[in-house]
């Protein structure tokens, strides 16, 4: 398991462009294929990261490593994640700034940055399907069932979007609002 986790996060670390959220889709997809990560485990991770300090990428490798392979799993997952970044950093120091100015790296960013944005939308859609309909893919929606719980979740989701985009409310405040709403209405 340690080796599987190491290789999984090595793969994620290699394709990690443009910040921790850029790799969320990779964890979501590759995690399901390689270590049987479920949608519930993924959304737990996304939720707990909001109350944990440090870069999202490191939080993710630690959490997935821990739930799939204990403390040693979390160490191996984190080592796998940071190895490509550390290598790139060292190459940058050796070759000065040439690396980031090379056409190949600029080309990579040109394709990968928009792709990461698109993948995040794909991940959000899949997570919404899971949270609101309890399905794992877009092909499985048969009927809409509105319970008191899904309506509460929907109101919370829409409010979080409005507070974030319209009023620029800090993610930490949104997290506290989500936790409080859940404590009162969802237990």
């Amino acid at each position: 398991m340690d080796l599987t986790l190491f290789l999984l996060f090595l793969k994620i670390g290699i394709t990690c462009f443009g910040g921790g959220y850029g790799m969320m889709s990779m964890i979501f997809d590759e995690g399901a294929k390689r270590v049987g990560l479920t949608i519930n485990e993924f959304t737990d991770m996304a939720a707990l990261e909001l109350v944990c300090p440090g870069p999202i990428a490191l939080n993710s490798s630690t959490y997935i490593g821990y739930i799939k392979g204990g403390v040693s799993g979390s160490i191996f997952a984190t080592l796998g994640l940071i190895l490509p970044t550390v290598t790139v950093s060292i190459l940058t120091i050796i070759f000065m700034k040439k690396f980031s100015e090379s056409r190949i790296v600029r080309g990579l960013f040109r394709g990968i940055t928009p792709a990461c944005g698109g993948l995040l939308i794909y991940t959000s859609i899949t997570l919404m399907l899971s949270i609101f309909f309890g399905t794992e893919s877009i092909h499985e929606i048969h009927e809409l069932i509105f319970t008191r719980e899904t309506i509460t979740l929907l109101i919370l989701f829409v409010s979080a979007l409005i507070l974030q985009f319209r009023f620029k409310i800090d993610p930490i405040v949104l997290t506290l609002i989500g936790a409080a709403t859940g404590l009162v209405f969802l237990h």
């Binding site: 959220y21 969320m24 959304t43 737990d44 996304a46 939720a47 707990l48 990261e49 909001l50 109350v51 995040l120 991940t123 959000s124 997570l127 919404m128 949270i131 979740l153 919370l156 989701f157 979080a160 979007l161 974030q164 993610p171 949104l174 997290t175 609002i177 989500g178 936790a179 409080a180 709403t181 859940g182 404590l183 209405f185 969802l186």
Partner: peptide, 10 residues
């Protein structure tokens, strides 16, 4: 509750 918020943040 936090899960729903995290999707909005993503």
């Amino acid at each position: 509750g936090i899960r729903v918020v995290s999707v909005a943040i993503i």
